[in-house]
Design a protein around this nucleic acid. Sequence first.
DNA 1: TTTATATATCGCAATATTACGATAATAAAT
DNA 2: ATTTATTATCGTAATATTGCGATATATAAA
Lengths: 107, 107
Amino acid sequence: MGITKSQIFSSKQNQLASIFKVLAHPGRIAILQYISRQEACICNDIVEEIGLAQPTISQHLKELKNIGLIHGEIEGKKVCYCINLATWKEVQELMNSFFNTTKFNCC
Amino acid sequence: MGITKSQIFSSKQNQLASIFKVLAHPGRIAILQYISRQEACICNDIVEEIGLAQPTISQHLKELKNIGLIHGEIEGKKVCYCINLATWKEVQELMNSFFNTTKFNCC
DNA sequence: TTTATATATCGCAATATTACGATAATAAAT
DNA sequence: ATTTATTATCGTAATATTGCGATATATAAA
């Protein structure tokens, strides 16, 4: 016991939950906001901006990359992380569709 | 180590992340969808509908109640859980505002 | 080639989450 | 008052997440 029983839920429900999970950390929220504020392709100024160690940031970036919310482009010894607009919009719509199809019922 | 370093993030970032966290479980997604599908105030038919034990469902309902997404009304020995429309809309707007204020930057 | 800089990965400790059996609490029914 | 049904809480085991030091990897600079 202890593990989430994903088998008993639909793949839509699991997908939505796993997207929410990636966003369920203030550090990852902060990283997304920071990346989005920068005009140029900024990489690990993120480490200095956010107050977490470099391996921790790298790990958070990986999770954001995994669901495609950002993508990293290697530029010399630096890596440039950017918002992936297509996925971004998709995720936003997925969430809105969840919120909109849930109707007020009673009480 | 191990604990999320909430202190270094803004209260907005923490608030948003903690809302995402409540939604980051397929069981809670399923509960919300089920509640919303019911015309009448249905309570722990939820236990039979979702495939989780009664204490587990009760625990998930508590988390949903804590952020105000649902509220429970005691009706005899049963409890009727309903979507709280006001909070529901608030949460949706909070998320949309997060998605909309994040702009596409580079690459 | 050596050195310096930037990023990723590994391994582990601390903490959090998930799930549920046992049990308590509450209220209707008998 | 006792029984039955419904829900909440407690305690605990299994697993997941968070964070970071140590280290590996990769590329630019010297």
